[in-house]
Design a protein around this nucleic acid. Structure first.
Length: 829
RNA sequence: GCGAGAGUGGCGGAACUGGUAGACGCACUGGACUUAGGAUCCAGCCCACGAGAGUGGAUGGGGGUUCAACUCCCCCCUCUCGCACCA
């Protein structure tokens, strides 16, 4: 071969050739087939922000290997891709550049689709969906209407961040230091009507379901569990002094109710107006409320540095003691949790303790810790643990856990309280005062109120001719053609709802739409969905661990209850891939530490980029982009390419493996089959691509060594088998070069249709294994023996070993432990 | 503060149910081939002592169980992530 000109590895040409081949041969189109096991591989679809970043490349590479691997294992694989195409960045870009959100979005999609093709991902492009198209969102509107009929959608007032100058609602991230990001004027808290999905109907089910999602990372399940935040406690009503009204509180510590010394209400509590009526300091209270609200907006989510409050002038009565309790407003009480009112027990709650100290309110000890006494004067912090009740009337002496039940029972008996479960999770507010989203299919009639659009009038199309206004006004509200409508019930002139849906709604059901993406009569075909769903492997970033995944789980149940699906959970297995870092930090444009996928593909080819991403770290861990590591992967591919062509002529027409192999052939044949076993195990054990690749590298190293100059080369058929196996095992990871070499070996069909290599179990058996010899657990020698050599023989060999004798000399052998096929440990002293 | 996860060579990372710690790759060092190479090939590469054979030490720290511990148990330290005034 030395005089033949060496063939060069040219990734660009090879990759282009096979991408075209797959495209022209409809390689990855999925069709239901009841006779084959299905496999649904799905990666979180991207927001078309402009171009792919390395995080996308990693996400989709992992997904593609899963899909290709499962295809080789005989599964009927569906592997779709689409675009989460509604969202705020399109509007921002429109305002900035004057480019319409639709144009901006479609341009980005076209570019990013090209990038995905260049990476060689095996998608069924016939199933591509784009959520900003009416053919998609019309079904979302239908689902909304069906949910409305079922009582799963309702309207209520909600507080929003409002910019007076821009006349618009701002998202949390659009508020900077309490001011509007665009015009810099102050943001105020405003009550607006909006639509809510009644996720609370499913809270328990969503919580219980987590226990059965054993294909999900523990971490994600815990995060969702905490997010749902279930807590058991009691609801107790404290009657107002001189009034028939009561203040309802929620507490997890009803056992401390005798220690209540004041009451804390959220500043937004609806009873505030009534409470401070006629109070001489009412003006100061209003000022306080106003200030707390402003501070809350400015600070964003999170706790204020200091606890603050103000007395309302009003009192309520502790129904257990008859004591008068002063009512305060406090900046740390949340309206969105519980009842927005808290009974304050300073001795046993740290927040109440700090508050009481600051405002000099009484501290009453009602729980005594075991073996200790507490005195309010000497306490430096609240005691929040369990103990024995005191100063609690007839409950004195009882254990705090028992007292919780007893006190709740007493409240229930006297009908001023009851046991209650409270969740942190609230209903899902979906109204967004934005343009680039799915229009909410509602018409507001002056007589009939809000009425759902008739199904035959769907979709309520987003008017694309709308012009985005510089000031951020929603263009829908100003567009008469869109707003003016007639009431579907009474026919009177009415106004369309000008809000759009939260974009999380689109991503809550897209996996079902992929099952029949062109269906024109319903959101998706029930039969197709029943065949393909649930998703067998879902892959995406942890940043979606809570919201997206929780909403999707909610939607699956809603669709089930609407009769579309017969499953409870959408994603059987979940893989959350780690982030891609450079110099130890997450890649981000603002930090300037980004690696551009296009550049990498141009320089190394998609196969090398894919291989590096898979090899550098296990999929669930962070991946540090190291260019020398990429070089290493390129080197591996190029070297194999060279080796392949040096031996092609010899192995191309080599015969099948004969039954009897000579020694020098046996070794390589054995390693080849052992490698298949190992790679298969790594793939099945949670997609450990990094170790799978390293096993193939070991085979390649063995192959190169066997064909080296100092040993007689193995027979052509054995080399051929090793080469074929390497190509097959790596084909899910580096599909282009795999196709190319596969074809050069004389194969006529695509390697993507080839099966996973078959293991010859006999071939994997070793004829000689190394047994380790130890003295007191320390390695002192090794012997090579036949597998399954019996224990007595092993022990005898160990005793005869020079190394063992050296270290047992002058000592008494106390025990000899023999582990078959592994080791002999001689215990001596 | 609460919850979860992780600490192994210069680096990324291996080690399945306890059984040769450091696979595979990168970096580095030496050599070969070369007009040259940052190409390619071969070899070495945890630390200490030693010319070498070898000996001892080593998986964040400390203790324990065991013939045997990266792996199991207890205590502590550090880092990352999530939630964060949730009553």
């Amino acid at each position: 071969m030395s005089n033949t000109k060496e063939k060069k590895y040219t990734p660009a040409a090879i990759e282009d050739k096979w991408q075209r081949y797959w495209r022209e041969h409809g390689g990855f189109i999925a069709t239901p087939d009841p006779d084959r096991p299905k496999y649904y591989a799905l990666e979180m679809f991207p927001y078309p922000s402009g171009r792919l970043h390395m995080g996308h490349v990693r996400n989709y590479t992992i997904g593609d290997v899963v899909a290709r691997y499962k295809r080789m294992r005989g599964f009927n694989v569906i592997h779709p891709m689409g675009w989460d195409a509604f969202g705020l960045p399109a509007e921002n870009a429109a305002i900035k550049t004057g480019n319409h959100p639709a144009h901006w979005t479609y341009d980005n999609i076209a570019y990013m689709r090209g990038q995905l093709r260049q990476l060689g991902f095996s998608y069924d492009w016939q199933r591509e969906i784009t959520t900003c198209r009416p053919e998609y969102y019309r079904w979302e509107q239908l689902i909304f209407l069906e949910m409305l009929k079922k009582g799963l959608v309702y309207r209520k007032k909600t507080s929003v961040n409002w910019c007076e100058t821009c006349h618009t609602v701002l998202a949390r991230e659009q508020v900077e230091d309490g001011c509007c990001w665009r015009c810099d004027s102050e943001v105020i808290d405003r009550e607006m009507n909006g639509w809510f999905f009644r996720i609370s109907n499913y809270t328990e089910e969503l919580l219980d379901g987590l226990d059965h999602l054993d294909g999900w990372p523990e971490k994600v399940r815990t995060m969702q569990k905490n997010w749902i935040g279930k807590s058991h406690g009691a609801e107790i009503e404290f009657p107002l002094k001189n009034s028939r009204e009561t203040i309802k509180i929620f507490t997890t510590r009803p056992d401390t109710v005798f220690g209540v010394s004041f009451m804390s209400l959220a500043p937004e509590h609806p009873m505030v107006t009534e409470l401070i009526k006629g109070y001489k300091n009412a003006a100061a209270v209003w000022e306080f409320i106003d200030r707390v609200k402003r501070e809350k907006i400015a600070r964003g989510p999170g706790a204020a540095e200091e606890k603050e409050g103000i007395f309302t002038g009003a009192y309520c009565i502790n129904p257990f003691t008859g004591d008068e309790v002063p009512i305060f407003l406090a900046n740390f009480v949340l309206m969105e949790y519980g009842t927005g009112a808290v009974m304050a027990v300073p001795a046993h709650d740290q927040r109440d303790f700090e508050f009481a100290k600051k405002y000099d309110l009484p501290i009453r000890v009602v729980i005594t810790p075991a073996g200790e006494t507490l005195a309010p004067e000497t306490m430096t912090e609240a005691f929040t643990g369990a103990g024995t009740l005191c100063n609690s009337g007839k409950f004195d002496g009882s254990d705090s856990d028992e007292a919780k039940a007893a006190i709740t029972a007493m409240a229930e008996k006297n009908s001023f309280g009851r046991a209650r479960v409270t969740y942190r999770l609230n209903d899902w507010g979906i109204s967004r005062q934005r343009y680039w989203g799915t229009p909410i299919p509602i018409i507001h009639c002056p007589d009939c109120g809000p009425v759902g659009v008739r199904e035959e009038d769907l979709p309520v199309a987003l008017p694309e001719e709308a012009i985005l206004l510089e000031d951020g006004h929603s263009p829908l509200a100003g567009l008469d053609l869109f707003v003016n409508a007639t009431c579907p019930e009474c026919g009177k002139a009415a106004r369309r709802d000008t809000d759009t849906m939260d974009t999380f709604v689109e991503s809550s059901w897209y996996y079902a739409r992929y099952c029949s993406p062109r269906n024109e009569t319903s959101p998706f075909d029930k039969k197709e969905a029943a065949y393909w769903l649930p998703v067998d492997q879902y892959i995406g970033g942890v940043e979606h661990a809570i919201l997206h995944l929780l909403y999707a789980r909610f939607f699956t149940r809603v669709l089930r209850d609407l009769g579309y699906l017969d499953i409870d959970e959408p994603f059987k297995n979940l893989l959350t891939q780690g982030m891609v870092t450079l110099d130890g930090a997450k890649m981000s444009k603002s930090k300037g530490n980004v690696v551009d996928p296009d550049e990498m593909i141009k320089r190394y080819g998609a196969d090398t980029v894919r291989m590096f991403i898979l090899f550098a770290a296990p999929p669930d861990r962070d991946l540090e982009w190291v260019s020398s590591g990429v070089d290493g992967c390129y080197r591996f591919i190029a070297r194999f390419f060279r080796f392949f062509h040096q031996h092609l002529a010899v192995i191309k027409d080599a015969a099948a493996i004969p039954k009897e192999l000579e020694r020098q052939n046996l070794a390589l044949h054995r390693i080849t089959h052992q490698t298949i076993v190992k790679v298969e195990a790594e793939m099945e054990r949670g997609f450990h691509f990094n170790t799978a690749i390293s096993k193939v590298m070991e085979l390649a190293n063995a192959l190169y060594a066997a064909c080296g100059e100092d040993t007689p080369p193995p027979a052509p058929e054995v080399i051929r088998e090793a080469v074929r196996t390497i190509i097959l095992l790596l084909s899910p990871m580096i599909p282009h070069i795999a196709e190319e070499l596969w074809q050069e070996m004389g194969e006529t069909d695509s390697i993507s249709r080839a099966g996973w290599p078959k293991i010859d179990a006999d071939a994997t058996k070793e004829d000689e294994i190394t047994v380790v010899l130890q003295v007191n657990g320390k390695l002192r020698g090794k012997v090579k023996v036949r597998p399954d050599t019996d224990n007595d023989e092993l022990e005898a060999m160990a005793r005869a070993d020079a190394g063992i004798q050296k270290f047992t000399a002058g000592k008494t052998i106390r025990r000899v432990i023999v582990v078959k096929n592994r080791l002999v440990n001689v215990v001596a002293n």
